[in-house]
Design a protein around this nucleic acid. Structure first.
Lengths: 138, 138
DNA sequence: GTCTATAGTAAGGCAGACCTAACAAAATGT
DNA sequence: ACATTTTGTTAGGTCTGCCTTACTATAGAC
């Protein structure tokens, strides 16, 4: 089974690969503030699980299975982050930070409900209403 | 620092102690479906951290520090569980289960906002409105 | 009072996620 | 081309949280 730690690695690999260019192990090490050796181990494990193709300096590629796995996590991440920032009015950095942690533990049913609820709130302008109330309280 | 695992142990100890009577290590083992020895280790660590007073068969007591720590966790738990069940309309068991996991990773700012937002939604009957919409969709 | 079931501890192990230090190989600078 | 980074791996360790097995101490049953 994929662990929380590996999910984080896979997520960043997917994001980098789909957005721009290549990603190196050392970049991940910087991003997560961990030792290069820790990244090395993690990449080897992801490769063992057939989620990425890892050939050291030759680069990191994502497999179709890895892509599916990554997309699941990213979907959760986005739903959470959107809810925090757009509905609750939390600043983006904090929203992202919390989404990053919660995405690994929350279950499907709750995530789906949060999504539907977020859409509902935007449609009914509940977010704007809430922020107004919230600002007045200060 | 207190870990997620220890937070869970402390939480159940606090809950049992404040609700009914005594709690034994073996009860915790059943509750969490872990071996007695695992509980034993955890209790010793909690005692080392001065969060509980543990004297084997003589029982488990919670220290004032432990109480404060436990209350923090329980507060988060309740805010999350209430939001999931009362606003999103998720059933209690699932709400509890998710609250249990998220309470260890979410930060203060987000939790506070969720609380304020939950109150706001109840006041404005947004929860009822949401459930109606949700039911019609099915 | 003995004897059995229950509760707790100790010892030894495993996996995940991290570390440092030492080293090899490749890329870069000049 | 050669020296110096930079990048990645290996080896050896730590810590947390869990396990099993085997042992001890106690509480209750009879």
């Amino acid at each position: 089974m994929i662990t929380k730690g590996l999910e984080d690695y896979l997520e960043i690999i997917y994001n980098k690969i789909s957005s721009d260019k290549d990603i190196k192990a050392v970049d991940i090490a910087h991003e997560f503030n961990v030792a290069r050796s820790s990244v090395s181990e993690a990449l080897i494990r992801l490769a063992d699980m057939n989620l990425i193709i890892y050939e050291g300096r030759k680069g990191i590629k994502i497999t179709p299975e890895g892509k599916i796995e990554a997309q699941k996590i990213i979907k959760k991440h986005k739903i959470l982050s959107d809810f925090f920032s757009e509905i609750l009015g939390i600043d983006l950095a904090v929203s992202e930070e919390n989404a990053c942690k919660i995405e690994h533990v929350i279950n499907e049913e709750v995530i789906e409900k949060i999504k539907v609820f977020t859409d509902f709130c935007i449609e009914k302008s509940i977010n704007k209403q809430f922020r107004k109330t919230n600002d007045n309280d200060k």
